[in-house]
Amino acid sequence: MKKLIFLVALTFATLIMVVIASHTQGLNYSNKINELYVFGDSLSDIGNRFKNTGRVSPPSPPYFQGRYSNGPVWVEYLSSNLGLNNKQINNFAYGGATTLNSTVNDIPGVLAQVYSFTKAHQKVNTNALYILWAGANDYLSGVADSTASVSNLSNAIQSLVTAGAKNILIANLPDLGKLPVTRNSPYSSSLSSVTSAHNRELAKSLNFLSQKLDNDTHFIELDVSLLYREAIANPAKFGFTNVTSPCVNNFAVCDNPDEFLFWDDIHPTTVAHRILGEAALKELKIAY
């Protein structure tokens, strides 16, 4: 009888410890991240190109303080939700960037951004979150094959991992054939096809890398493609009334930007960025 009581008590104590541990992990997931490093293009740029063009591009106003939107972009919403201050955010994203390991027209590609960073920091902060989102400019500029672009992103990820990065968030692409600038163009179908190919190959690449690397390396995938599809299929769910047209047109701004998915012909509004930031936070909660 005493043995039975002991076993029951032990089982109950173990269960309580598991519950407490899992609850604590859920509460403290954000404490694992104490810095943010961002590599990408205009979707993540918080003013780098604006500064380097003498505060000319993008024109502000109507754009917000050098962002390619009408307010903060998604990495800013994410960092705020993680409780990070400006000194803990390191943003190398640059409007117009491709995935290339080169600088074209003073615009560093994402692989060039990462290589420059890892060359200067051969050992990086293992408690930081490293963000990569790029590829759209490759295809919008005419690249028809996704192989090289995904390879560039894969090489960027491996460079960060080699330097010691343990937490890497990678976003895929929205349907580039459904942007206001492309949806009625002759290139809409081909852009949709190359976007799908990019997202498939990126997922395969991440799966391969996750199997190849240590178990303590976390890849967090942000499915931007799905979010855009859901917003376009069910605008009211996200508070949108317009998911096809840009809010700003020839510097004329619409009266209700918070109800628009797109700020201009390519870039999302800050409300859409907030949704992306919240989705990224949700993925981090799942990862930890």
Results as ranks from 00 to 15, higher is better:
Lys87Arg: 10
Val19Thr: 03
Thr11Asn: 04
Asn70Cys: 09
Leu27Glu: 02
Ile16Gln: 12
Lys32Asn: 05
Ser79Thr: 14
Gly96Cys: 10
Lys87Ser: 04
Leu78Cys: 15
Asn31Lys: 12
Ser44Pro: 00
Val18Asn: 15
Ala13His: 12
Gln25Pro: 00
Ala97Ser: 06
Ile20Leu: 07
Pro58Met: 14
His23Gly: 03
Asn90Leu: 06
Tyr77Trp: 11
Ile20Trp: 06
Trp74Pro: 00
Trp74Glu: 09
Lys87Ala: 04
Ser57Tyr: 05
Asn101Ala: 10
Leu43Thr: 07
Tyr77Pro: 02
Leu84Gly: 08
Pro72Ile: 15
Ala21Ile: 08
Leu43Glu: 02
Tyr77Leu: 13
Tyr94Ser: 05
Ile20Val: 14
Trp74Ile: 01
Tyr68Val: 07
Gln25Asn: 05
Phe12Thr: 13
Arg49Ile: 06
Thr14His: 09
Ile33Ser: 06
Gln88Val: 02
Phe64Pro: 03
Tyr29His: 04
Ser30Cys: 07
Ala93Cys: 02
Ser57Arg: 09
Trp74Asn: 10
Lys32Tyr: 08
Tyr77Gly: 10
Gly95Ile: 07
Gln65Arg: 14
Lys51Phe: 13
Asn90Gly: 02
Thr14Tyr: 13
Phe12Ser: 15
Ala93Ser: 06
Ala21Tyr: 05
Tyr77His: 15
Leu84Lys: 08
Val73Trp: 12
Ile33Tyr: 01
Val75Ile: 15
Ser42Pro: 00
Leu82Tyr: 07
Ala93Gln: 05
Leu82Gly: 07
Phe64Arg: 00
Leu78Gln: 07
Ser30Phe: 00
Ser79Trp: 10
Asn81His: 15
Arg67Leu: 13
Asn85Lys: 08
Thr99His: 04
Phe64Trp: 04
Asn28Phe: 03
Asn86Phe: 07
Phe39Ala: 10
Ile33Lys: 03
Asn101Leu: 10
Arg55Gln: 06
Asn101Tyr: 06
Ser44Ile: 06
Val73Pro: 03
Thr98Asn: 07
Leu36Tyr: 09
Ser60Val: 08
Leu10Ala: 12
Phe92Pro: 00
Asn48Gly: 06
Ser57Asn: 06
Ile89Met: 03
Val56Pro: 02
Ser80Thr: 14
Thr53Lys: 14
Asn52Cys: 05
Ile20Pro: 04
Gly26Ile: 03
Tyr94Ala: 07
Pro61Ile: 11
Arg67Gly: 06
Leu43Ala: 07
Ile20Met: 09
Glu35Asp: 09
Glu35His: 03
Lys87Trp: 01
Asn85His: 12
Thr99Glu: 01
Val56Leu: 14
Pro62Tyr: 14
Phe92Glu: 04
Thr11Trp: 09
Leu82Pro: 01
Leu36Ile: 03
Phe12Glu: 13
Gly95Thr: 01
Gly95Val: 02
Asn52Ile: 13
Asp41Cys: 01
Lys32Ala: 10
Thr24His: 00
Leu43Phe: 01
Leu100Thr: 10
Gly47Arg: 03
Tyr68Asn: 01
Ser44Arg: 09
Asn81Thr: 13
Tyr77Glu: 02
Gly71Phe: 10
His23Ile: 00
Phe12Tyr: 12
Thr98Ser: 04
Phe64Gln: 05
Gln65Gly: 09
Arg67Gln: 12
Gln88Cys: 10
Gln25Leu: 04
Ser22Tyr: 11
Gly54Met: 05
Gly54Val: 08
His23Arg: 07
Ser57Ala: 14
Val38Trp: 03
Ile33Asn: 00
Tyr37Pro: 01
Gly26Glu: 09
